[in-house]
Amino acid sequence: MDQSSYSTTDSADTTNESPSQNKGGLSSFAVRATSGLIYAGLFIGCLYFGTIPTTIFVSAMSWLCCFEFFRMMRLDGKVANEFIGLTASILFPVASMFGSLWVTMLFAVLVLALGLWYVYSPRTRISDVAVTAFGPLYTGFMMSAIVLLREQVSGPKGALLTIGVCASLWVSDSFAYIVGSRLGKHKMAPKISPKKSWEGFFGGIVGSMIIWGILWATKLYALNLPFAMLCGAVVSILGVFGDLIESRIKRGVGVKDSGNLIPGHGGMLDRSDSLIFGCITAYLLLVAGGVL
């Protein structure tokens, strides 16, 4: 999620703007829009064609996000075991295709592998082990919810539901930016993400609720309107927490973006931070509500 999504009207604060936002005007917007459309098109296409393409795409996303996380941690003096961490980040979405037993087994193997690494590598610190474990859990495990969502409902209905969940987070981001840039006056988390405002935060919730209202209106799922609105609000809020968590990580190591993979957006982790917590929240709500 873009860090400027909850912008306040304090124009002097530009600490979270990327170079593409600061110069280039219309051309920068065109680059950002084009790269965003390509990303969304690939994502939606994989969701449409089924669980296996979805799993491949989510595993690739997880690997990239975990790689960027480890790279940031090196700036903080933490040396992760990238082979173990990156392998686990790929395997968590794959394991989710085969059920909770395989995910549990992967957890056990990950802990065992890290324990053995710690025992047989005298220079390894426990902080290195912790960072190596957190990386794939924060990325691959959490984003496995996208695969679970797509797998639970077969065919176009499953694709539409998963696209709708992701779209609710994307639209929440857009509404937050629009409302925040025009009306934002009250800063939400000035020490972590100075340009976010409470006005943008509530605007984002409205945007998410609109998408969940559309999912309810299709009558394809066992959703009632109050529950759909609840899902829209809670998913948006957890998406914001995902954004703030990544912002805190970046601020802690002194970088603006997790990477530069996606022109105008930064790294894959910048693009996926709200999905990390938003999608797993949506999955748990839908299961708890008897929709899945």
Rank of each mutant, 00 (worst) to 15 (best):
M61T: 10
R32L: 13
D10M: 02
W170L: 11
I280D: 02
K195S: 08
A133W: 15
A189I: 04
G252H: 04
Y120Q: 02
F49Q: 12
T281R: 13
M143H: 08
C66Y: 06
D270C: 03
R271Y: 10
W216G: 09
A130P: 00
L75M: 08
L101A: 14
N224A: 05
W216Y: 10
F98C: 10
T54M: 03
S7P: 00
Y118V: 03
V171F: 02
F29R: 02
A189E: 01
A282G: 11
Y6C: 03
L215H: 06
T54C: 07
V103F: 10
K219N: 14
V103W: 02
R74P: 13
A189D: 05
I90Y: 09
A228L: 06
N16D: 15
L223G: 11
G25D: 03
I211Q: 09
G50D: 12
V253H: 11
V58L: 01
T8H: 03
R125A: 10
A108Q: 00
W216H: 15
T14E: 15
G180Q: 04
K187F: 08
V206Y: 10
I280K: 00
C231D: 13
G207I: 00
P53F: 07
V131C: 13
G278L: 04
I262R: 01
F57A: 03
L284C: 11
H186M: 05
V58D: 03
S35E: 06
G204D: 13
I192S: 13
A228F: 03
F107D: 14
L286M: 12
A113L: 05
A189W: 00
I44E: 03
C66D: 09
M97N: 04
L225H: 14
S272M: 09
A282W: 02
L225T: 02
F83V: 11
G45C: 06
K219L: 12
S121W: 05
L292Y: 04
S35P: 13
C65N: 09
Y6Q: 06
T87F: 10
S5N: 06
I44C: 13
T34D: 05
V235R: 13
G266R: 03
L112H: 01
F201A: 02
G164Q: 08
S121R: 10
L106Q: 02
W212A: 00
G180N: 12
M61Y: 07
V58R: 07
G36P: 12
C279I: 01
I211A: 01
K78Q: 11
D257E: 10
G278M: 00
M97W: 05
I192T: 09
L149D: 10
G254T: 09
I146P: 06
L47G: 02
V255T: 04
S4I: 00
L42W: 14
G99F: 07
P190K: 00
G239K: 01
M188I: 02
D10Q: 07
A40Y: 10
Y177N: 03
I146F: 07
V109H: 08
P190I: 00
A282T: 09
K78T: 11
A33Y: 13
F98Y: 15
S7Q: 14
